[in-house]
Structure formats: structure tokens, C-alpha cells
Write a protein that binds this DNA or RNA. Structure first.
Lengths: 215, 215
DNA sequence: CGCGATTTTGACGGCACTCAAGCGCCGTGG
DNA sequence: CCACGGCGCTTGAGTGCCGTCAAAATCGCG
């Protein structure tokens, strides 16, 4: 998540875009010079395709998140980014951003930190996907969402998940049925209440303790 | 992997280190300013610990690889790096590297590309851990090693794996027994021959076709 | 209101984990 | 030199978690 100051600097040379639900953007065969985008409103998902039909969610992004980092390696996007809701975002050509980085040490530092956090986040996902069981994965997913909503001044105990069970399952390496069962189990243990996509965390400590054993 | 030119620039202000097998370095509670390291010789593994006993391998690194990227986000290492063999590496304080980046546009670009490749690699691991079955994971592991050896001018069909089955399994989200069984199965299908840690890929196409269905 | 998409729940099976035994290699010490 | 023990690897048997298949309920939207 970028700070307000970074956002302002970043948006000096911006290109605005609107994305509508389920409309694809930032294709793998994207513009020869990749661009980075900050989300202004709405949720988006980022997926990587293996070219054989299977797609893996690599992340859900919310307002303030920076997306398109996957394009840095080659200048072309490896992932597709798709809106979960009507969304708006602003982008900047990567070359411009590198120029700004050379001029502004603070921005450079923050940009590197953002890249580093993405790497750290991905390593956490590897831990999750490699070592956790279904219920633990879902608990971590909820706690992650909760923390990110809290960072944005929203409720950390009640929120709406804009993605489908299918998308959650893909992200967590589970089937949609297993995700649904895990939600039901957590609700049965009085840790959460869940009504379709509306979640309330009723026992934050209990949810966190689920992860104590593994991660 | 860094180019020879980058290596030279990078090593202008270096700090040399030697690591002995199974001796830990770059602890989580590392120096307040993180440092990045390039491997000169030997293999190392990088692991992330969840604080509850479980450890997840995040990568195996070989000569030329840049490690310590996880420290960028916070200035402290999130991971531990441990030598699989006697190894040597050279490091540079991250602050120095940022200074060089501002002075040298090419270095900056390559540094960003390295970060981006790490992110891309991690996304590939998420795909592997989230969607592949045991045999596919092991096949991808072998092909990945093969490609990286080839990049360094070594044989892509015969090589030695310096890590244990346990470490491979941890990396791939499998148990050591499952890894062993997968190797045996691949050998039974005449795709590889394997003698302890010595591998020979006898049917590269067949191995790759294993992944066609999923990734 | 009606239809498709999404979600929940159940039954069943398979793949990978757990537990266990045995083998080979190697370093150590008698 | 050889016995011994530890470690890593392989293989087998049984179990359990989660994927698959299926059906019903509910939601969202025109």
C-alpha cells in the first residue's frame, strides 16, 4: 500500500483507466513497455495462466495497492488483471517511474519496499500453500483481509468479500467446495459468522490460534 | 542471475563471506541494514520460519544468484539462508546499492529486473504449490534445475542435486517419502535415471509433456 | 417472477501423509 | 581393519484429508 504522499507523486504523470467487472485488462501480451497501476476504487484479481487452461490467482488487490509488478522482469505482463467490481486505477509507464526514482530518493526507497513486500507476501503464500491445511488456509485468508481493511480505516471484524468461492479456492489451492466447508466449520466453531459474502469475525484470537500450530 | 558486468559493478564495494555447510547466516534478526549477497560458489537454501517450528523452503540458490531480496521490505531479513555445501558469497549494504542505482541507469534497470524475476518465480511456485500433483511438482523441479545448470554452461541432462529429499519435499510442499516415490516413478517411466543425488534426464520432452496438462 | 450463477451439503474415492521397516553409505572408534 | 551407529533413501501398508461428482438451496439480476 502506498502512502498518500507517494500516491500524489506517483499520480503526477498518470494515465487513468476504468475497468468493468469481469473485463480483462493488462494482458500477458501487453504493451511492450509495462505500466504499473494503483487502484483507486474497487477490487481486482491477478491471475497467472500456464498456457494449458489452468489459471492460478496470485493475489487480490484493493484500493491503494500497486499492481503490475510482474511486468518489471520482462517489460511485459506475465499476469492478467481482472476487475471483481467496477474499478478505477491510474497507471504510469515503468520507464517514467524509474526516472522519478533516480530523482527522488524517498520514492525510490518506497518503491523498493513495495517490491520487497510483494516478495515477502509471496513467500508467505508459499508457506501457506506448501504447509497448511484447508481450515488454516481459509483462516489466514480472512485474517489477511481483515488486516488490510483495518489498514484502510475500515472495520476489521465485518466486511464483504467481493470474490467468489471459486476464486478464493483457486487462490488458496483448494476447491470451492472445500472453501465452503471450511467457512461452515469456522462458523460452527463460533469463530466467525458468514452469510454469503458478508463475514463477521467473532473471535479474532481463536482464529489466530488456529494458525499457531502451523503458521 | 546477474550478468558479468553487473557482477563487477556490484562487487566494487563488497564484503566477502564464507559459509560452511549447515551453518546459518543472514538471520531473521539480522543487521538493521539488510545486505544483498551474490553467491560465488556452492549451493544455499533459503527458508522462512513461521515462528511455530515449521519452516518452508523458499528457494535454492546457485552461483550467480542474488539472495537477500526478502530484506528489502523492512531492512531486516525475513528468511534464513543456509549453505548446502561450503560456499562463498559477497554482499553489499542495501543503502550502497540504492546509491549506485541512482547513479547508473543500467544497473538500476537490471536490479529491478532481478526483483521482478523473483516475483515472477514466486508466482510460478504458487501455481506449482496450488495446482500440481506430486509427480508434476518433481518434474518441474528437475526441469528448473536443468535449465539453471544450462544457463551456467553446465550439463542440462546430468547433474547432482546437493539437497536432501527432505529439503526438496519441503520446497515442493511434499513429504520426503512422496518425493522419493515420485523419483522412482519417473525412473520407472524411463524419463530419468536417478542414483541418490545424481540425476540424468533421459527424456526431456517426456518430462516436459508431464507438465503440459497443468503447467 | 424466472433463470442462471453461486453456494451449501452429502457421498465416495484417490492421492498424498503417517507410520514403519529395511538398506546403503560413511565417519568413528575399538 | 572392521564393527557400529547415524543419516539419508527407498519401499510397503494403512489412514485421512481433500478432490470429484451430484443435488438442492439461495442469491442476484433482468
Amino acid at each position: 500500500m502506498l502512502s498518500a504522499g507517494d500516491m500524489r507523486r506517483f499520480c503526477d504523470r498518470i494515465e487513468h483507466r476504468r475497468m468493468r467487472k469481469n473485463r480483462e485488462h493488462l494482458h500477458r501480451a501487453g504493451a511492450a513497455l509495462g505500466a504499473l497501476y494503483v487502484i483507486n476504487s474497487g477490487f481486482v484479481k491477478t491471475i497467472i495462466s500456464d498456457g494449458n487452461g489452468h489459471e492460478q490467482m496470485t493475489g487480490f488487490s484493493m484500493p491503494g495497492d500497486l499492481i503490475g509488478l510482474d511486468a518489471i522482469a520482462t517489460g511485459k505482463h506475465q499476469c492478467s488483471t481482472i476487475a471483481l467490481e467496477d474499478s478505477s486505477l491510474c497507471g504510469m509507464a515503468f520507464a517514467d517511474l524509474e526516472q522519478l526514482n533516480r530523482e527522488d530518493q524517498t520514492l525510490q526507497r518506497h518503491f523498493h519496499q513495495t517490491l520487497g513486500m510483494e516478495i515477502t507476501r509471496d513467500h508467505g503464500m508459499m508457506l501457506l500453500l506448501g504447509a497448511m491445511r484447508a481450515e488454516e488456509r481459509v483462516a489466514m485468508f480472512l485474517l489477511n483481509l481483515s488486516r488490510r481493511f483495518a489498514l484502510r480505516g475500515l472495520s476489521e471484524t465485518r466486511f464483504r468479500m467481493p470474490m467468489t468461492r471459486q476464486e478464493i479456492g483457486n487462490y488458496l489451492g483448494l476447491t470451492l467446495e472445500t472453501v465452503s466447508r471450511a467457512f461452515s466449520r469456522l462458523a460452527g466453531e463460533r469463530l466467525i459468522t458468514i452469510d454469503n459474502r458478508e463475514v463477521e469475525i467473532r473471535n479474532m484470537e481463536g482464529l489466530q490460534q488456529l494458525l499457531q500450530s502451523r503458521g
